[in-house]
Design a protein around this nucleic acid. Structure first.
Length: 451
RNA sequence: GGCGACGUGGGAGAGCGGCUAUCCAGCGGCCUGCAAAGCCGUUUACACCGGUUCAAAUCCGGUCGUCGCCUCCA
């Protein structure tokens, strides 16, 4: 088991992953609010945390990955109203889409995908603790967290309360004792079709409290890794951290891991900005292999631009992996492989450096291509497996098999070649091309490749 | 305005004081009847200005620029 380090937003540096129990890691990654289909930016979280989990499992850890789905929220009310459907109906439909779209990434499901709507009892209990402790107060059916009652507020996002723009704005602002306070519970308003009874009145949870409650319910307190996009650091994660620690006296999580934003035309891709590229469309256009290779091509914390050129480059890189798959044979890898394998896993152990890991893979590929003897594929398979790309070593099921007609043309071409009738051989090759097959002449004779 | 991140060869992207990263693309070569695939080579990059050091893309200071958060957001 290697020592694994990760960048922690709270400390602002790369720190060792220290588990509560040996060999067990709990990860909570904030998922999407389901009022529209998810875009490539949302998908980055899903991919990064799924792959990170695979890596930890490879290192021998038992991992529990929790990725919540926010199903009760102002945006959902608005979208449902616009569509003329009930909000639970919309949330349910979009959740199904989210599951279907992310399933196409072929990374499996997180171990838990809790919904705020199913965790209300825990949420209410947590809010009650905060009220009793004097960290929260009721106001006209709402409950607010008293930010100034919690002295560590701002430690995660590295800002001082007095530096915040304290613009009023927002419904309920006049009920707050302090503009920086935020809602734990929102009293029911006309037109909202999801609400629950609570000791301080009927209503629904605020956004931040659901994650505190669900994370604690599933993973406990002081769990290993809490994550989400950098845009969640403030206020979402700051508030989560404040609520839980104020209520329990214990940190919510040990390491705060924040993948960078996906950009479109140099700007953050987001639903509210409207510059999204939807995940299912990206999968249709480029395929899941290219998409995963694309995400691995940059470090998870760096912003990454989503554009055609980059996705095509990722697809070409995957093609190179497919080519080497044709040369390797099942079996143990040669001695030269070990250092590259070590570099690969070492890179992932150091703040999950996927581009460095990919570089090791490609060095492996080049070395294998250079070798004159057959190369065993075990190490390559192991490396690619952690990044969920080992499927490229198998024959692509989407590609057709050589048809009898194509085989006949190929034999015909061989005959022409033996007679050195190059014009005829070339025209037969073109014909095969039209049928969807490329011909490669090798030392062992020709080979047909479905395109 | 406050806080933070970042500026690397045609493009992407590692690099954490001295050693060819890697991928994509172009060009040249090898191989091939020609291709394809593969291999080799390739214009020797580090925003700018100072400083520290025997030695800096890597450390320090400043300048310029880009982006993120400060409001729902992955």
């Amino acid at each position: 088991m290697r020592e694994i380090t990760l960048h922690d937003t709270l400390l602002g540096e790369v720190v060792p992953l220290c588990t509560r129990e040996p060999g067990r890691v709990g990860i909570y990654a904030c998922g999407p609010t389901v009022y529209a289909r998810i875009h490539v930016g949302n998908a980055r979280q899903f991919v990064v945390f799924s792959l990170f989990k695979r890596f930890l499992q490879h290192e021998g850890y038992e991992v529990t990955l929790v990725a919540n789905i926010t199903d009760v929220n102002d945006k959902i009310y608005a979208a449902a109203a616009a569509a003329g459907v009930a909000s639970p109906e919309l949330a349910e439909a979009m959740t199904a889409r989210y599951v279907a779209d992310t399933d196409r990434l072929g990374l499996g499901r997180p171990d838990h995908e809790p919904l705020a709507g199913n965790t209300v009892a825990e949420i209410i209990a947590l809010i009650q603790v905060l009220i009793d402790a004097g960290h929260a107060y009721t106001a006209d059916g709402d409950v607010y967290f008293a930010v100034r009652s919690y002295e560590r507020y701002g430690e995660l996002s590295h800002r001082r309360l007095d530096d915040l723009d304290q613009g009023e704005g927002g419904v309920g602002a006049e009920r707050k004792r302090d503009p920086v306070d935020f809602a734990l519970w929102k009293g029911h308003k006309p037109g909202e079709d999801t609400s629950w009874d609570a000791p301080w009145g009927r209503g629904r949870p605020g956004w931040h409290i659901e994650c505190s409650a669900m994370a604690e319910a599933i993973l406990g307190l002081d769990f290993e890794v809490h994550g989400g996009g950098t845009d969640l650091i403030f206020p979402h994660h700051e508030n989560e951290a404040a609520q839980t620690r104020a209520a329990r006296g214990v940190p919510l999580a040990r390491i705060w891991m924040h993948p960078g934003m996906v950009r479109l035309d140099s700007e953050k891709m987001s639903k509210s900005a409207g510059n999204t590229f939807l995940l299912h469309a990206a999968l249709d256009a480029y395929g899941r292999d290219a998409l995963i290779a694309y995400f691995c091509s940059a470090h998870y914390r760096a912003p990454i631009e989503f554009d055609d050129e980059r996705l095509r480059a990722a697809a070409a890189a995957v093609g190179r992996l497919r080519e080497v798959a044709r040369r390797v044979v099942p079996g143990a890898s040669p001695a030269w492989s070990a250092p590259l394998r070590e570099e690969f896993f070492g890179a992932l152990a150091e703040d999950f450096n996927t581009p460095r890991a990919m570089a090791a893979v490609f060095e492996w590929v080049r070395t294998a291509n250079r070798a004159s003897e057959a190369v065993g594929d075990y190490d390559l398979r192991e490396m690619l497996g952690v990044l969920a790309l080992d499927n490229v070593l198998e024959a692509d099921p989407a590609r057709g098999q050589a048809t009898p007609q194509a085989l006949a043309l190929m034999r015909e071409r061989e005959a022409a070649r033996r007679e050195r009738d190059w014009d005829r051989a070339d025209s037969l090759r073109e014909e095969l091309q039209r049928l969807g097959f490329a011909v490669r002449d090798g030392p062992d004779g020709p080979e047909l490749l479905a395109l």
